[in-house]
């Protein structure tokens, strides 16, 4: 929120640049190819479906950035796995 932005006619594109760069570098540094991510996704799915029935269409696995407490960004593996129902008979 820049108070002066509205009547100063000033943009703040450098913040956009910085944010884009930070996300970009999280990906670059993690060096995760789409192929590797796909492989990972499949294996995670295989393991989890031993225990729960998952909605495969709603599955989403991606590398994102996450803020640590000291405000530095670290790469994080984010998996959103919708569960249809639990398998009760697994032992």
């Amino acid at each position: 929120m820049d108070l002066f932005k509205s009547f100063g006619g000033k943009s703040n594109s450098k913040n956009v640049a910085k944010e884009r760069l930070q996300l970009l570098l999280v990906h670059d540094r993690a060096d995760v190819s789409p192929k590797l991510l796909e492989l990972m996704k499949e294996e995670i799915m295989n393991v989890i479906s031993n225990y729960v029935e998952i909605d495969e269409d709603g599955l989403n696995v991606e590398i994102t950035k996450e803020k640590k407490r000291d405000d530095t960004l670290v790469p994080a593996l984010h998996a959103n796995i919708p569960i249809k129902k639990m398998k009760r008979n697994v032992r």
């Binding site: 000033k10 594109s13 570098l25």
Partner: peptide, 16 residues
């Protein structure tokens, strides 16, 4: 441009 907020400054780049 840095003063205008339209170019990353030294600190921005060093942060990254």
């Amino acid at each position: 441009m840095v003063k205008r907020g339209d170019m990353m400054n030294i600190d921005d780049i060093m942060d990254i």
